[in-house]
Design a protein around this nucleic acid. Structure first.
Length: 314
DNA sequence: TATTAGGATATGT
DNA sequence: ACATATCCTAATA
């Protein structure tokens, strides 16, 4: 049990179709065979697959209705020492993530918001994984894990999702072996939550996949004396969520949608780079707006404060 | 109060 | 010439 979610008040959309990333498969698999169907009746204790995991996201999403992006006050703090894993996954914004490529008006409103939610969930999953990696000092790819890494991951996952402890059930196992294990084998080692752990591991495995997909072309600007352009600079920051994730981050990397979380800090960094001590967000944002006409950056279809979108992702 | 849009003008390479 | 940087008014959240 220990679902991190208090329960749904408003029934979410009826279907869940994740974008075509590797995550989709594993997420669906985790749900337990059937197509994802949300029964309107509040799930006392659903099948358990990744349900708990998902519900915690959807809960938060739907608890706020149209107020997404309104200042995630619960977000992590600036300096907050990574002592403990961030509590349950926290959603703060990015509702508009996806679903904005209107296929010939065939999509209903519900389907649109659904897509947005899906994309948002994927984004949050990846963000969680990144956070965990940083916290645990492990790689994102489970197959690289040492037995020690495996233990760290287990403990973190248990804590993060309030799972019963597996104790030493997985001791001595390296990442390779762990990845090779079937759901059945997981269950044998941990009858209580082996299936959930297996599903979580699946997510990690697929996340590697999808991360590779979009982790190629980027800006180098480091060398080459050319004056750096603002859009390049922004991409640079986005490239290092490790360092700048608190200031600026992707809401939807595939679509090039990003959010400036701390406008003052981003402006300060830009000022440093350009040797413009008087730089501020007012001026930086004016420069961003110059990009509208040039077709470099635009406002997402569903406009949100401090959220912009690169016109040409990739 | 902070953000957004866009005009006008100045500045650095 | 170009890409901002600076400054500003008005509208919006």
């Amino acid at each position: 049990m220990g679902s991190a979610s208090p329960g749904l008040s408003a029934p979410p959309p009826s279907r869940l179709l994740l974008p075509d990333t590797g995550l989709r498969n594993s997420l669906e698999k985790g749900s337990g065979a059937e197509r994802r169907v949300w029964s309107p009746s509040p799930p006392a204790t659903p099948e358990q697959g990744l349900s708990a995991f998902y519900l915690s996201y959807f809960d938060m999403l739907y608890s706020e209705e149209g107020t997404w992006g309104g200042k995630g006050p619960v977000e992590e703090d600036q300096e907050e020492a990574p002592k403990e894993p961030e509590q349950c996954p926290i959603i703060d914004s990015q509702a508009q993530g996806a679903g904005l490529d209107y296929s010939p008006g065939n999509l209903t409103l519900e389907e649109h918001s659904l897509e947005q939610v899906q994309s948002m969930v994927v984004g949050e999953v990846l963000k969680d994984i990144e956070t965990a990696c940083k916290l645990l000092n492990i790689t994102a790819d489970p197959s690289d894990w040492s037995p020690g890494n495996v233990q760290k991951w287990l403990l973190w996952t248990e804590h993060q999702y309030r799972l019963p402890s597996v104790g030493k059930a997985f001791q001595e196992l390296g990442g390779k072996e762990l990845c090779a294990m079937s759901e059945e084998q997981f269950r044998q080692r941990s009858p209580l939550c082996g299936d959930i752990l297996h599903a979580h591991l699946d997510i990690w495995k697929s996340a590697v996949e999808s991360e590779e997909t979009w982790n190629d072309s980027e800006v180098d600007s480091s060398c080459s004396g050319q004056p750096i352009h603002l859009w390049q600079f922004l991409k640079e920051l986005l490239l290092k969520p490790h360092s700048y994730g608190r200031f600026i981050r992707w809401l939807n990397k595939e679509k090039g949608i990003f959010k400036i979380e701390d406008s003052a800090q981003v402006a300060r960094l830009w000022g440093i780079r350009k040797n413009r001590p008087a730089m501020n967000y007012d001026k930086l944002s004016r420069s961003i707006r110059q990009y509208y006409k040039k077709g470099i950056i635009r406002k997402p279809d569903i406009s949100q404060r401090l959220v912009y979108q690169f016109v040409h992702p990739v």
